[in-house]
Design a binder for these strands. Structure first.
Lengths: 107, 107
DNA sequence: ATCATTTATCGTAATATTGCATCAAAGCAA
DNA sequence: TTGCTTTGATGCAATATTACGATAAATGAT
């Protein structure tokens, strides 16, 4: 099929799955890494840094933007991208709670 | 193409991307949620709980196992699954560091 | 040995993703 | 205006993913 069943699941769960899915790609994770180091960047910076075509990078940026991980602001001919702090805070909480909840190997 | 370029990226980055990708699906996240609540489970438990066919759930379990998120131990005719604490600790650290590093909205 | 139970695997159909070349749009400079 | 720069949109081709029925394999019970 290729289509993911989402209706039977909680909306929050689906949202978090979409965020994690967006992060689950080497190029997109590299973009995050770059933004963590540089705070902001434009598409052109990434075209220089990553071994991918401009169209491909633009596409990855769109996916990150779609789930709210990054934000883009038009600035002249270029677009300034930066990370959304809230999303990372939510994920930090999720994994903090999860790690705390897992006691030890049970099997 | 459909094929993901991985060679140009750091091996650790690719590994983390694969883990996040595995978590980036509603059904697999629901499996994680179940395991956080119950500590262990067998495939049959999930077949009852989730609105997916047994073959589909088994496939998702394999993907989670492949990246080390869960572990399965044969126990009679069934297989006992549980979470890998280390993976969650690593992700907790990653998102803790990331959240700390993001100062404020820059654009 | 036979049967039931449980899980994994195979095959396959439908859909999604990835990467790119190409082109369109929008702002800036002269 | 004309050009240049930057980014986003479109349209492919190749591959990956998702879901499931059917079947196989392995264990335990009778």
């Amino acid at each position: 099929m290729g289509i993911t069943k989402t209706e039977p699941f909680d909306a929050d769960l689906v949202k978090r799955a979409n965020i994690l899915k967006a992060l689950g790609h080497p190029a997109r994770l590299a973009i995050i890494q770059h933004l963590l180091e540089q705070e902001t960047c434009i598409c052109g910076d990434l075209v220089i840094k990553l071994p991918l075509a401009q169209a491909t990078i633009s596409q990855h940026l769109r996916e990150l933007k779609q789930v709210g991980i990054i934000q883009g602001t038009v600035s002249g001919t270029s677009v300034c991208y930066c990370l959304n702090r809230e999303i990372f805070k939510e994920l930090r909480e999720f994994f903090k709670d999860s790690a705390k909840q897992i006691k030890k190997k049970k099997c």
